[in-house]
């Protein structure tokens, strides 16, 4: 399984033509279970990104439906942009991890986890502050 030759693209006898070569040209073909686990992790990050984007779009919808202040539109745009950044980071993170797996190196730490946690916490506090101000204003 893990000792399969590098030319795995079309079978052991075929040259490996998979792209990007910056990933598949490094090291040797790893245990497929590691590669699939890395793929699932990247997909989980992409889903996080999509959830952020959907959340941003939902806030825009809510703001337009309920005639809410422009502040919420600013928050929605910010959330969408954070979602885009997470999507890019998921791709970069998959590349780094796959290269490390193929080269037999220790896995790199997640690039964006700390930033994402801080961003979500700040957004949550801002939204809580907004909700409290609305209630107090009413």
């Amino acid at each position: 399984m893990g000792d399969e030759p590098s030319g795995v693209d079309g079978g052991p006898d075929q040259p490996d033509t998979r792209r990007p070569r910056s990933v598949y040209g490094v090291g040797t073909e790893p245990d497929p279970r590691f590669s699939l686990a890395n793929e699932r992790t990247a997909l989980a990050w992409v889903r996080t990104s999509l959830a952020l984007v959907a959340g941003g779009v939902a806030v825009t919808s809510l703001a337009s439906l309920a005639d809410l202040p422009a502040f919420l539109d600013v928050v929605a745009v910010l959330v969408c942009l954070i979602g885009a950044a997470v999507a890019v980071a998921s791709w970069l993170s998959w590349q780094r991890t796959e290269r490390a797996i193929r080269a037999g190196r220790p896995l790199p730490p997640p690039i964006v986890l700390r930033v994402l946690v801080v961003a979500v916490a700040v957004l949550a506090l801002v939204m809580a502050g907004y909700a409290i101000s609305r209630v107090a204003g009413a």
Partner: peptide, 20 residues
């Protein structure tokens, strides 16, 4: 898939700016 997510984020941001 990551590019699709970025595209949706851009479309969402455009909607947010239009609403703003």
């Amino acid at each position: 898939t990551a590019a699709l997510s970025v595209l949706l984020a851009v479309l969402g941001a455009v909607a947010g700016v239009a609403s703003l």
